[in-house]
């Protein structure tokens, strides 16, 4: 029982009319894992999350959440889930604390328990001083943290976070990450979607890359980078770039493992970036700017789908 996956999916499909949002995916998420869905908008991440959250019925395939069938046992499953949706849907008619206490009541917690739990969680997300205040004046980061607190109100076995930091400024993002990291350390199972590479690398033990409703790769951030990219990447920009990048790419042929000419820059995949840069200069090429960096999931995504992850 202990090793039973919290999420188990085989051939999971979601269709809306003619449109296939999720085109047959297999998944297993183990207890204590931090699992990520990475992909651009429209990849099928949110549709998958909604099926896992038991608010959307699978069109086809097998899905078990916490060992139960989401169609038959939706209520029992949702009682043990915490959900942080993509768009904050906090209640503006209630103050900050009431947003948590009211929500706790939906899970059948008593008034006293709700109050206790709300105060603990406000402390945890660093909003205790705003407890009596209204929701509307909170910053984006604060609202997000409150939504995360709300998702924790029933002490869930599994927390679903749909793009937890989309739209937040860098400071607010780091604060959210830090809180999520603490949850992870406590052993809470996290499942999140993101289209931020750094977020996936920060938080996820394991992730799948989704594109057009399918899983195109799976593994730990490190192993994905090892499999689909090189240790380092050199970004070259030429002063007369844009139209000339394809010509430059030809002249760079043979350097590193792989060359990817993008409209604005050329990516050189190499295990030793500095070596590759020396070779570029040896060939008499003079890029306007050179950046050697570690490979990221962005490079993995580019390699897998042939497009940058900008949307």
């Amino acid at each position: 029982m202990a090793d039973q996956p919290l999420i188990h999916a085989r051939g999971l499909v979601k269709r809306f009319g003619d449109f296939t949002a999720v085109a047959g995916i297999d998944l297993d998420v183990a207890p204590g894992e931090a699992f990520g869905f990475l992909g651009p908008n429209g990849a099928g991440k949110s549709s998958t999350m909604r099926m896992i959250g038991c608010v959307s019925t699978p069109t086809q395939g097998e899905l078990r959440i916490l060992g139960m069938d989401p169609v038959r046992d939706g209520t029992r499953i949702r009682a043990r889930l915490g959900v942080c949706p993509q768009l904050d849907n906090l209640d503006p008619d209630l103050n900050v604390r009431e947003n948590l206490t009211t929500y706790a009541r939906y899970f059948g917690l008593s008034r006293a328990e709700s109050r206790k739990r709300a105060d603990e969680l406000l402390e945890f997300v660093q909003l205790a001083d705003r407890a009596e205040g209204k929701v509307e004046p909170l910053s984006g980061g604060m609202k997000r943290r409150l939504t995360i607190a709300r998702a924790m109100v029933n002490d869930p076995d599994l927390v679903l976070l749909d793009e937890p930091t989309t739209g937040l400024d860098p400071q607010a993002r780091h604060l959210v990450w830090e809180r999520l990291f603490r949850l992870k350390q406590r052993g809470t199972t996290l499942v999140l979607t993101t289209h931020y590479m750094d977020e996936a690398e920060q938080l996820c033990d394991r992730l799948v890359v989704m594109d057009a409703g399918k899983i195109v790769a799976e593994g730990s951030p490190r192993s994905l980078i090892q499999t689909y990219s090189t240790a380092e990447v050199v970004e070259l920009r030429f002063a007369d770039g844009l139209d000339a990048n394809a010509d430059y790419a030809a002249k760079l042929d043979g350097i590193g493992e792989r060359i990817d000419p993008l409209p604005d820059r050329i990516l050189l995949y190499a295990d030793d970036g500095d070596d590759a840069v020396s070779e570029v200069h040896r060939r008499g090429l003079a890029p306007a700017s050179v950046l050697v960096r570690r490979s990221t999931l962005e490079d993995v995504f580019l390699q897998l789908t042939g497009r940058t992850l900008v949307d």
């Binding site: 949706p85 939906y106 059948g108």
Partner: peptide, 13 residues
């Protein structure tokens, strides 16, 4: 307000 969306993520039907 998306109130009910938030509520439906809980056991409430």
């Amino acid at each position: 307000m998306k109130t009910f969306e938030a509520v439906l993520a809980t056991p409430v039907r």
